[in-house]
Design a protein around this nucleic acid. Structure first.
Lengths: 296, 296
DNA sequence: CATTTTATGTAGTTTAATTACATTATAGAG
DNA sequence: CTCTATAATGTAATTAAACTACATAAAATG
């Protein structure tokens, strides 16, 4: 279904990632929203400089419906949609180019890998404005403990985050397998914050666990695909949608975005906590540093 | 083969980047407009999200002056400027490094964190050509097993790498604490490859262990500071020098570079190994994917 | 020193984006 | 079928953004 229009980008009008994302979600949209989606896909170029009223007129729907469409796509509003459209238009054919091919030589492949990592972070940059950092931090400031949750590869991200946040002097834990997640969430408290990392956000045990924790009053902060089941359960969602091109040789650059996002959260939290956190950071840094800096 | 003018299409347009264009025209601007220009250059990343009133406030000029600046730059208005800024931010070279300051608000801090991560990877890209990828891969191809070594925060990078390489079907292990490192290296063999991650490369036990392994004929691939003791012991060194500014609020963006570098190594190795590795990658991917894609 | 030119700000206008609420359609239960 | 509940959509009002016209101040020129 979506396979056959893969090569469509040749048209040049813009076979960009956002369009693919819209296409992927077409099914979950209501009738009017679908019309908006359709029109945007077919007129990306005009869509980038259209105002909300122009889009409404062109698609014969009301202006609020256009906004509703934006929200359904995980954006904060029309302005945000426009931002992403512009960003997406900037790289019409880059994706094909960035894919590692079986006959690439080592150096070419390495360059492509690095570029796709950079791409992942630049993409993150444009998503930033729609992310609920302040809200998440407000919850974390008063949390009794933070639990970092992730399965498989995301487990490494969760571990890394845990190791980062504990240095602020906050009790931190991890839940990295189904059993632990279920047990942990069964005893969740309303003063706890769960930070959940998941690409698709569809692992049943994880979603169940988080739903349970949420029901018990805990705050769920999810780094996941905003249209996933996990996102529906979460208190706050950070849009980490999985990459659309899943060539075997494509590395999981999206985890770099997750790590960076968590860096941002941690720094933001440190600033919010103020001197105490700063002091803790200094002390943990010194603890390592003094070890080998005494004899040079 | 495909398109040898990889970068050309973008970089080639030379100076079409909005930021450079602003810089170029700085001289012809009036005093107030110059302030706007300056601020935008120094805060490209925050500027993309700003409204006209925010820019006016930040630069202490009136709103019409901001618009006049836009017109002086050849844009039709503020909206147009924003469009171009967003586009410019899709080019990673436009990001500069800014330290997080204690009085930054959350959003500014987060933007700075992301920017500095991007910088770390852009820097990595420039270092790439001097790195011994092919040599490292040649060793790995024939290795009996790969051991990933890292202490503390670098341990997470080592784990991540291990999880990545094992999917190629190669026996992989980790050594993440001094004791394990010493034991492991005591039984090192000449057909083993050690991949060591260390920012400073000065932990005595680690250096000792690697020296021992090296003496026993093993290959040591080090991601570390090239002037460190570890680097002297290693067979091949990938230059991962620690960041020079060690503000408490500066996150460890350098680990992103390490992760990316290891991504590159893994993909390079996969290509070298050929079909077998590709098949293994496919199978591990499917194992996860089929789990939840059967019932939508 | 008067006069013109240029630079900037103030206050008002227009347009865009968003919200709150009302209405209509649709689906499910009896 | 009909009634109710829910979702989908639109209308009208609100808020905020972008822009314009005009006034004032500063600099430059004769």
């Amino acid at each position: 279904m979506q396979e056959n229009n893969k090569r469509k980008n040749k048209e040049g009008q813009g076979g960009n990632s956002l369009v693919k994302r819209i296409e992927r979600q077409l099914g979950q949209l209501s009738r009017s929203e679908k019309r908006v989606a359709q029109w945007i896909i077919e007129n990306v170029a005009s869509a980038v400089d259209a105002s909300i009223s122009e889009v409404a007129e062109a698609t014969q729907v009301s202006q609020p419906t256009v906004i509703r469409f934006c929200r359904s796509m995980g954006m904060t509003g029309f302005r945000d949609l426009r931002t992403h459209l512009i960003a997406a238009m900037q790289r019409p054919d880059n994706y094909l180019h960035n894919d590692v091919a079986i006959n690439d030589d080592t150096d070419d492949a390495v360059v492509k890998v690095v570029e796709s990592s950079i791409r992942a972070l630049v993409d993150l940059r444009t998503l930033l404005s729609g992310m609920p950092f302040q809200a998440a931090i407000d919850k974390m400031v008063n949390a009794r403990q933070l639990i970092f949750v992730g399965l498989g590869a995301s487990g490494y991200v969760a571990r890394d985050a845990c190791h980062k946040f504990f240095r602020l002097g906050i009790p931190c834990g991890t839940a990295l397998d189904s059993q632990t997640i279920l047990q942990q969430s069964a005893i969740a408290r309303s003063d706890e914050v769960y930070v959940v990392i998941s690409h698709m956000g569809e692992w049943a045990e994880m979603v169940d666990g988080m739903r349970c924790a949420r029901d018990r009053g805990a705050t769920i902060i999810a780094l996941t695909d905003p249209v996933s089941s996990l996102a529906k359960v979460a208190t706050w969602v950070f849009d980490c949608h999985p990459p659309e091109d899943t060539n075997v040789f494509t590395p999981m650059s999206s985890r770099l975005a997750q790590l960076t996002l968590l860096d941002g959260l941690q720094i933001g939290l440190a600033l919010e906590l103020g001197e105490q956190a700063e002091e803790n950071l200094k002390l943990t840094k010194q603890a390592l540093f003094s070890k080998w800096s005494q004899d040079p």
